[in-house]
Simulated assay, not measured.
Amino acid sequence: MGLRIFHPVNSGLYIKGSSSVLVDGIFGGRGNGFSQMPEAFRRAVFGGNGSHIDGMLFTHSHEDHFCQEQLKKAEQLFPHMTVYGPELTAKNVEPFLTAPGLTEFDIGGCRVWAADTIHDGDRYRDVPHCSYFLEMDGQTVFIAGDGSDLGELKKRYGRLLPKHVDVVFVNLYQAFAQNVHQFIRDFTASRIYLYHLPFRQDDCYQFWMQAGQAVRSFPSDLPPLKILTHMNWH
């Protein structure tokens, strides 16, 4: 693909093209089965200048996806950076509501569709949550976050969304879900990546064992499910 994507750990994604967007890339997480923001990645994020990060998006405010303290630091370093996410005040952007639950805006040369989705797990259903379509440099990326109702997006918004998605990022539970498999078919996705995994030394819930099962059991009519490598470009 034309875009370059760096994956630190957990759900962090740094998407680099004509614009640079960091999604769920400032986080905590150790102690709940996920990993802290790696120090090397922290230095890369906070050691550059504002031109390196045009926008930060967050799917929701759980600590393995988001850290308020680190966001405040980033906003001081990059005052012109766009910030958007549930329960956050949108900064340096003018989002507009395309349909109930669907918001559009631009981050430089990146068009963003933020779709309200339901966080998976009954105990988290009331947590405000977004999943994102990002279109940049002729490529479209879908970032699921922890959304559980992804199979309804095509029916709900139809022509308001991109017709095709080049790359889909799903978590472990989504990889097993039939409604997510339908989402992939609906948008004729070309590449499917499994993310939202901790470093192996932090894996106290055997997520990596389940990840192997997800890869082996992924439907054969879909593109193969690949696990993202931590602290690496893809």
Results as ranks from 00 to 15, higher is better:
D186H: 04
D186R: 05
F187A: 02
F187I: 05
T188N: 08
T188I: 04
A189Y: 01
A189E: 00
A189G: 02
A189C: 07
S190C: 04
S190M: 03
I192R: 00
I192Q: 00
I192A: 00
I192F: 01
I192G: 00
I192N: 00
Y193N: 02
L194V: 01
L194C: 03
Y195Q: 08
Y195D: 11
H196K: 12
H196P: 02
H196A: 15
L197H: 04
P198D: 11
P198N: 08
F199Q: 13
R200F: 12
R200E: 14
Q201G: 08
D202T: 15
D203N: 04
D203A: 01
D203G: 01
C204P: 04
Q206G: 11
Q206F: 12
Q206C: 11
F207E: 06
F207S: 10
W208Q: 12
W208L: 14
Q210A: 14
A211H: 03
A211F: 03
A211T: 02
G212L: 10
G212K: 14
G212V: 07
G212C: 08
Q213R: 14
Q213H: 12
V215A: 06
V215M: 08
R216M: 07
R216V: 09
R216E: 11
S217L: 12
S217H: 13
F218P: 00
F218E: 02
F218L: 08
F218I: 02
P219D: 15
S220E: 06
S220F: 06
D221P: 02
D221W: 05
D221L: 07
L222C: 05
L222F: 07
L222S: 04
L222K: 05
P223I: 01
P223T: 00
P223W: 12
L225C: 11
L225K: 10
K226D: 03
I227A: 11
L228N: 09
L228M: 10
L228H: 07
L228D: 05
T229C: 09
